[in-house]
């Protein structure tokens, strides 16, 4: 008998031919999926941004073990800012609810209020930096102040981007481009905004309570 070679041969993971009904069905790129796509996109982007702050945090923890570490007191303005940013998340939720319930006017109003609160936060942040500088605590004064300026600066940049997004959504709303139950822009923008708010609370804890 001729030697038969048993060649290593693997089967397809689903066995040879699985009827398509068993595969998970994704109609490539039609409009209904787009909404889902944008939502998935924002969550993944948030994962990436989280890694940015995680990297800063680990740098912060390593550096805070240095001998030249001088702890900084919380500038009181930051508490005002914290209230502002928490309030902005609340108003954005109100906006979103108005949107889902087809109250376009309420939607635009709360969106505008949120954006205004965002701007207030940014102004407050600049004033907080000013307060510190007035006490003679500058970026390069000592490592804690360096981290304070850099981390709050990076956060402010993200919040600034959020304000732009809010205004963009507002402009879409003004042009009647958003359809309740269909458009995902408000939800996506809210996800991002709450995340940036959350990062603020996180930074407060890292910078002053660790």
């Amino acid at each position: 008998m001729a030697q038969t070679l048993t060649v290593p041969r693997s089967k397809g993971p689903d066995g040879p031919d699985v009827p398509p009904e068993l595969g998970d069905y994704r109609p490539g790129g039609d409009a209904a999926m787009r909404k889902d796509t944008a939502k998935l996109g924002i969550w993944i982007a948030l994962g990436s941004i989280s890694m940015l702050f995680a990297a800063f945090t680990s740098a912060y923890i390593v550096r805070s073990a240095g001998e030249d570490w001088v702890p900084l007191a919380v500038p009181w303005l930051l508490w005002v800012n914290t209230v502002v940013i928490v309030a902005s998340s609340v108003t954005l939720e109100l906006a979103r609810r108005a949107f889902e319930n087809s109250r376009p006017l309420g939607f635009r109003k709360w969106l505008l209020v949120t954006a205004a609160l965002g701007v207030m936060f940014l102004v407050g942040q600049v004033m907080a930096w000013g307060q510190l500088a007035a006490q003679g605590i500058y970026l390069q004064s000592h490592p804690h102040s360096s981290f304070f300026y850099v981390l709050t600066g990076v956060h402010a940049a993200h919040l600034f981007a959020g304000v732009i997004v809010l205004l963009y959504v507002l402009s879409l709303a003004m042009r009647y481009r958003l359809i309740p139950g269909e458009s995902s822009a408000p939800a996506i923008c809210a996800t991002y905004w709450h995340f940036v708010g959350g990062i603020w609370l996180y930074l407060l804890v890292v910078l002053f309570y660790i």
Partner: peptide, 23 residues
């Protein structure tokens, strides 16, 4: 980063009918 975001979302969300991850 923009590219990576696109890659991941596209592969998760835009596969043709019948194309499971394990295919």
């Amino acid at each position: 980063t923009m590219g990576g975001l696109n890659f991941v979302v596209t592969i998760i969300n835009m596969r043709a009918k019948g194309l499971t991850m394990m295919r």
